[in-house]
Design a protein around this nucleic acid. Structure first.
Lengths: 257, 257
DNA sequence: CATTTCCGTGTACAGCGTACACTTACTGTG
DNA sequence: CACAGTAAGTGTACGCTGTACACGGAAATG
């Protein structure tokens, strides 16, 4: 059956959306895709994505390894599913009504989610983010901007920029904390190793501006990652505010037309 | 020897910067770290990071597998090195002198680099980006902003936001093109599969805003990825310009003080 | 009941990263 | 020049990975 091929985009989408046909004949399966992916997520939460193996999942589920392939076409697809389902939808219950407050909550919550599940950043990009949860995140951000005079193109652009920023900065943050964990010694040790490197950097004249900037002590700032994140997020929200103001002016001009 | 441990941050930094002690006794090695990493990069360029294995590299270099471990402590570290060296420094020769033009070139060139080496996005984050090439990229952006009234904190923040944006949006772009490649059928097929999905999305009422936005046909826009990127980049540069204007005003106020 | 369908299993294979013990060849020192 | 001392490169081996394939048996339909 061609539809069983994991490479068929339709198949992966069906997997994501639980819309698989599911023939009526024969015995019912004892597991579900959610159980398989859920167990994989549990393992990744506990020991990182490197600890996720088909045998391991199967053992935890009390079945043989090959059984899993009745529910998931391949491990690559399983990883895709883990990414799509591991995120979960945003929790919008306490969000304020104004666009800026809502987007702020959106960004913060997204950061927290990824920081809490850093293995999501390790999953190589397979399919574009078209799962239910990803769409829910998109929906939340778009809904926040719906009341503004931004047009659809604007909204998509802002969404894209915010998403990139959140994932990118979180990625950087995780790389730091992980470097400490992996080497067993913390921030300070890394800082000292880096400090030993700095003279060479300064010395060889290849990075004059960087040398100047580091000399002012920007790297020794003691802000928490969350604070740094918030600050940059406000910067971006300011830009969005400016864009909104521009669109307001345009609308005003049209109305007067 | 403790320093030989790949987990020592100092060791990795030495590897990055080619500052290893290199005892004088005994036979000289026939290879170099650059050769090993270079071959790994060549394989990744040709067949993706998944095709990079120690045996494969060794074979291409005409040595046994275990020989590689004389130059590189582990495959994880090799991947780190690939990331750090695969990027190469930016080419600033044709960049304009004004900050905006320079940052625009910086962003575009960075995108092109990653699009040309998409496997860089597949390497799980190991160490923070403290290699010579990464610092060169930082230096280039900071140098562009050096003439502006931005303070050091501003500059680092802008650098961080721009980097996140470039990597994040490129990541998204690569995920799209790769999904087509992996499934063997192109954009259109994915579009159709997605189109078949859309009614369900519209129907279940969970994504009203998204439904509204997609209905306006934003997704059918035929802009090239590069155009979309440029547009968002300009948006961010506008924000930087606004920040610069604010700092100018502050400086003016101080001067009048 | 007969038949179709498909779940779950067992075995097997090719490939992976790398620990370890070893030979070999080179180099600086006595 | 001879002799350590040192490090380069090799070969073998182990435990792990993802998954192809063939099979037995249970379940639901006609």
């Amino acid at each position: 059956m061609a539809a069983e091929d994991g490479r068929d985009p339709q198949y992966l989408l069906d997997l994501l959306w639980r819309t698989r046909a599911a023939g009526t004949r024969g015995p019912r399966g004892s597991l579900s895709v959610d159980q398989v992916v859920g167990e994989a997520v549990r393992i990744a939460d506990a020991e990182g994505v490197g600890a996720v193996s088909m045998r391991r999942i199967a053992q935890a589920l009390g079945v043989t390894t090959m059984t899993l392939y009745r529910y998931v076409p391949s491990k690559d697809d399983l990883l895709d599913l883990m990414f799509h389902m591991g995120s979960g939808p945003p929790d919008t219950t306490d969000w304020p009504a104004d666009w800026r407050g809502a987007l702020r909550c959106w960004g913060r919550q997204m950061r927290e989610m990824v920081v809490g599940r850093p293995w999501m950043l390790d999953i190589p990009i397979g399919a574009p983010p078209f799962g239910p949860n990803n769409l829910a995140w998109m929906e939340a951000a778009l809904a926040a901007m719906d009341e503004t005079p931004l047009n659809e193109g604007d909204m998509m652009e802002v969404l894209m920029i915010l998403t990139s920023f959140v994932l990118g900065s979180t990625r950087q943050e995780v790389s730091m904390t992980r470097a400490s964990e992996r080497t067993g010694v913390s921030y300070e040790e890394w800082g000292r190793a880096y400090g030993r490197m700095l003279p060479k950097i300064m010395g060889d004249g290849r990075y004059p501006t960087l040398a100047k900037v580091t000399a002012t002590g920007v790297f020794e700032n003691e802000n928490s990652p969350a604070d740094d994140f918030d600050q940059s997020l406000e910067f971006l929200l300011n830009s969005v505010a400016a864009l909104i103001r521009r669109r307001e002016d345009e609308a005003g001009g049209e109305a007067a037309d």
